[in-house]
């Protein structure tokens, strides 16, 4: 540095070029990050490609009658889509009936009502709840929710049933919904709350008329993430809905049932995976594609909805 100050070079483009070493380093760093981004995209593309290829094999060889039958019995080459889609929808609806009020309620309480000290305790508890392994909840659903709640609601309910699985998934989803919803409400500016309180609004009014509408995009996001989580949840359903061998088509939530995810799990873990027997192996990919498309659509619609109702502040 000392010699540059002695030798006064005439001012030119070169004086503004910067340190070449730094520029090279910058380029290298950019390269690393680009590679990381590119790699994840490539992996995604490969997954989708594999999924699409095997799904194509399945769809092109399966007969229509196999896709629309009495139930999901891959060993007997009966791949009734209705059974598993309806099973997934039922479980998800029940789960969200549990998780939405509980999660949103917890979020409103934490963000609008709880004193800082209470919040300081409850937030970490919520995070711990979110990390309960789903196997544990699966057993809880089977051994407690099913006999103590579901079988009391309906004496015809079997021990394994979709309702217990749905409630279990709902409990599993609640902390996630609560946490995202609380973040959304927490990011509503304090000035809006003050405006509302300054008008003589009560806490409920402020929460319902001001904070929730201002946070709606985040709340919808919380709901959608919850739905995606519920649709994707496997273990609780595999344990508590009790249909490892297959399942008859049923709309009764007090019955055993099968969801897309649980069907895939049992296909992949062996009982049904008579590898090579007919299209059983490929049916796994078919269900996977179905799940993929479903969650994708969900996210697209959610995105549109959020864009339409969002309040900018």
């Amino acid at each position: 540095m000392a010699d540059t100050s002695v030798e006064v070079a005439p001012f030119s483009v070169a004086s503004l070029r910067g340190n070449p070493g730094r520029i090279r380093k910058e380029a290298a760093i950019r390269g690393v990050f680009f590679a990381a981004a590119a790699l994840s995209i490539v992996i995604m593309a490969l997954i989708v490609l594999t999924l699409a290829r095997e799904t194509y094999t399945f769809v092109s060889q399966v007969e229509l009658a196999q896709l629309w039958s009495d139930g999901w019995f891959p060993r007997r080459a009966l791949y009734d889509i209705r059974t598993i889609v309806v099973g997934s929808v039922l479980v998800t609806v029940i789960a969200m009936l549990v998780a939405t009020p509980l999660g949103m309620g917890a979020a409103v309480y934490l963000s609008e009502y709880a004193r800082p000290r209470v919040r300081g305790v409850l937030k970490p508890v919520l995070e711990v709840l979110a990390s309960i392994p789903s196997v544990v909840l699966g057993f809880f659903a089977l051994t407690w929710i099913s006999p103590e709640i579901v079988q009391r609601l309906s004496d015809r309910a079997s021990l394994f049933n979709l309702a217990a699985a749905g409630i279990g998934v709902g409990i599993l989803t609640t902390p996630l919904v609560a946490s995202i919803a609380e973040d959304a409400m927490g990011s509503v500016p304090k000035a809006l709350r003050e405006a509302s309180y300054g008008m003589g609004a009560r806490k409920v009014t402020t929460s319902v008329r001001v904070v929730i509408p201002a946070a709606v995009s985040g709340l919808v996001a919380a709901f959608i993430v919850g739905v995606s989580r519920a649709i994707g949840e496997t273990m609780v359903v595999a344990i508590a809905a009790g249909a490892s061998g297959g399942s008859l088509f049923s709309l009764n939530v007090f019955d055993r049932g099968q969801t897309m995810t649980a069907a895939m799990a049992s296909l992949a873990t062996g009982t049904d995976a008579v590898v090579g027997a007919g299209l059983t192996f490929q049916s796994l990919f078919f269900v996977g594609s179905l799940l993929f498309v479903l969650t994708l659509l969900l996210n697209v619609f959610a995105d549109r909805y959020v864009r339409r109702v969002r309040q900018k502040y």
Binding site: A191, A195, Q311
Partner: peptide, 20 residues
């Protein structure tokens, strides 16, 4: 305090209209 604020209104330093 709710009754108080209905009689005694407030205008804040930074305009804070609701996003409505």
């Amino acid at each position: 305090p709710v009754e108080v604020r209905r009689r005694i209104g407030m205008v804040f330093q930074k305009p804070n209209p609701f996003p409505k």
